[in-house]
């Protein structure tokens, strides 16, 4: 272990030399998509609750309810574009 100490020190020094930004572009894009997904989830919370309420009163509302519920999912799809352009 002690024999390798100089080499380890060298590796550590080298790593310091190449250290770039803390967050790479792809990492930032991933966070962007994640945040968009979170927002979509929050939006769907309210719509989903309302849709379930409507379906409970009237079964015919199932299809419109489902469509309305997944509409905010477009947020995530648009955010996915970011992944391809970085």
């Amino acid at each position: 272990m002690i024999d390798q100490a100089p080499e380890l020190a060298e590796v550590a020094l080298q790593a310091e030399e190449v250290a770039g930004p803390t967050l790479e572009n792809s990492g930032a894009a991933a966070i962007a998509v994640g945040l968009a997904a979170l927002a979509a989830g929050y939006a769907e919370r309210g719509i989903g609750a309302a849709a379930v309420g409507a379906i409970a009163e009237d079964d015919d509302m199932f299809v419109p309810g489902l469509i309305m519920t997944v509409l905010p999912e477009t947020l995530v799809i648009l955010a996915l574009v970011v992944v391809f352009i970085v």
């Binding site: 309210g46 719509i47 609750a49 309302a50 849709a51 379930v52 309420g53 409507a54 409970a56 009163e57 009237d58």
Partner: peptide, 13 residues
């Protein structure tokens, strides 16, 4: 609070 759910049901009724 769950106003969305209650509102949907109430409006239908």
């Amino acid at each position: 609070s769950n106003p969305e759910y209650v509102n949907a049901r109430v409006r239908s009724r």
